[in-house]
C-alpha cells in the first residue's frame, strides 16, 4: 500500500479525533483487558466479543496519545469480522512492521499508515499497546 505522508496523517488524525467504537458499554460475554504504557500513561481498555472463533465486535476506552488512540481505532476496525488465526496474523505483521522486521503489508490494510512509526522509537509502544491488549484477549479466549 503506497500512500503519501499527508494521506497517512489524515487517516491517523481522523481516527484520533473521531475514534471508531470508542466507549465500552458491553455485555458480560465480552472479554475486557487493560493495556497501559507505564512510562507515558497511555492507558486503554479493549473489549471484544468472540464467538465461534470470529471477532464479532470490539470496543475501547481510555486516555492515550494520538498514535495510541488512533491505532486502537484502526485495529478494531480492521479486526472485526476476522477469524482468530487471521487476527493473529494481522497482529504479528503489525508488530513486525513497528519493530522493523519483515512483514507482509498486504495483510495490514489501513494499518499500513503506521509504517513510519519506527522512526520515532518513543512512539513504538504507543502503537503496539492495543495489539498487546488484543493478543491478551485472544490468548484468554484460547485458554
Amino acid at each position: 500500500m503506497d500512500m503519501d505522508e499527508k494521506m497517512k496523517r489524515d487517516i491517523i488524525l481522523e481516527h484520533y479525533q473521531s475514534p471508531f467504537h470508542k466507549g465500552i458499554d458491553v455485555e458480560e460475554n465480552y472479554i475486557k483487558v487493560n493495556s497501559r504504557n507505564a512510562s507515558c500513561v497511555d492507558n486503554i481498555n479493549v473489549a471484544a466479543l468472540i464467538e465461534d472463533g470470529i471477532i464479532i465486535d470490539a470496543r475501547f476506552e481510555g486516555d492515550a496519545c494520538a498514535i495510541c488512540t488512533s491505532a486502537t481505532s484502526v485495529m478494531i476496525k480492521t479486526l472485526i469480522g476476522k477469524t482468530l488465526p487471521e487476527a493473529e496474523e494481522i497482529i504479528t505483521n503489525f508488530e513486525n512492521m513497528i519493530n522493523e522486521k519483515d512483514y507482509d503489508s498486504s495483510k495490514l490494510g489501513e494499518l499500513n499508515v503506521y509504517d513510519t512509526v519506527y522512526r520515532q522509537p518513543n512512539r513504538k509502544t504507543c502503537a503496539l499497546l492495543p495489539f498487546r491488549a488484543m493478543r491478551d484477549i485472544i490468548s484468554r479466549k484460547n485458554d
Binding site: V41, D42, D63, R123, C126
Partner: peptide, 8 residues
C-alpha cells in the same frame, strides 16, 4: 491535546 503529543 494529550500531554505526550505536546512533548513530542
Amino acid at each position: 491535546v494529550f500531554s505526550q503529543d505536546t512533548a513530542v
